[in-house]
Amino acid sequence: MRIYLRLLLPVLLVVGWWTTSAGSTSPFYPPLRDVLAAFGESWLFARLGSDLVPSVTRLLVGLLIATLVGIVIGVALGRSRLLARALNPVVQFCRSIPGTALVPVSVVLFGIGDGSKILVIAFVCLFPVLLSTLDAVRGIDPELEDVARSYRLTRAQRLAFVLLPAAAPQIFAGIRTALGIAFIMMVVTELYVASNGVGFVTLSARNSFDVPQMWAGTVLLGLLGVTLSALFLVLQRRVLRWHIRMTERN
C-alpha cells in the first residue's frame, strides 16, 4: 500500500504529461512520444560520446580537484590557527562569491574549452569541501590525538589513520554540497558558451527550434542529476559504513 502511494504521484505526472501533450499542437509543448523519440535518437547513441561524456567528465574532474585541494587546504587551516586567521578574510570572501558570477571571467581568461569549465567548477566547489574539512579537523577529539602521539604514530600515519577518518563524515557532507554546486556550474558553463555538452545541445536546440530535442535534453539533465546523486550516496555508504552503522546504533 505504502509503496503504491509513493509511486502514485510520479505515475500521475507522467500519465498527465503523456495525455495532455498527446494531441498538443503547440510548438512549445510537443507530444511526449516525440520527446522520447528525440531522447532515444540523441542520447542513447548519437550524442552519448560527443556531448554526455564531456559534460560528465568536466563535472567529475572539477569535483575531484576541488575535493583534493579542499581537503589539503582544509587540513592545513584546521591544524594551524595562525594560518586560518591569516587567510580568513580571503576564504570568507571567495566562498561568498556566487559561483555562477565567475563564469564570464573564466571564459575571458581560459576560453570555452574543457580547461576553463573544469577550473571554474573546481574553484566554486572548493569552498564547501574546504570549510567542512576545516570544521571537522578543528573538532577532532584531542584525546584521539593524545593516543596517536603517545603511541608514536608518524605524521603520515596520524593523517591517514586518525585525522582523515575522523573528519570523513563531515568531509563527505561537504563533497555532497559540492556535487550539487558542480552540477549547477556544469550546466551554467555549457549554457553560457560551449562547443559541446548536454546543456549546450539543449540550448542550441532552441535556436534551430527543435523543441522535442530541448525537452529531451532537459529530461536527460534531470536523470543525470538523479543518477549522480544516487551514485554518490552509494559511494558514501561504502566509505562511511562504520559511521552509518555506529549512528544507527545510538
Binding site: E143, D146, S150, F161, P165, W242, H243
Partner: peptide
C-alpha cells in the same frame, strides 16, 4: 598509555 575515556580513545572506524 590507557586513557580514561575508552569511547574517545579508540578509533571507531
Amino acid at each position: 598509555s590507557v586513557f580514561q575515556d575508552y569511547s574517545r580513545s579508540l578509533m571507531p572506524w
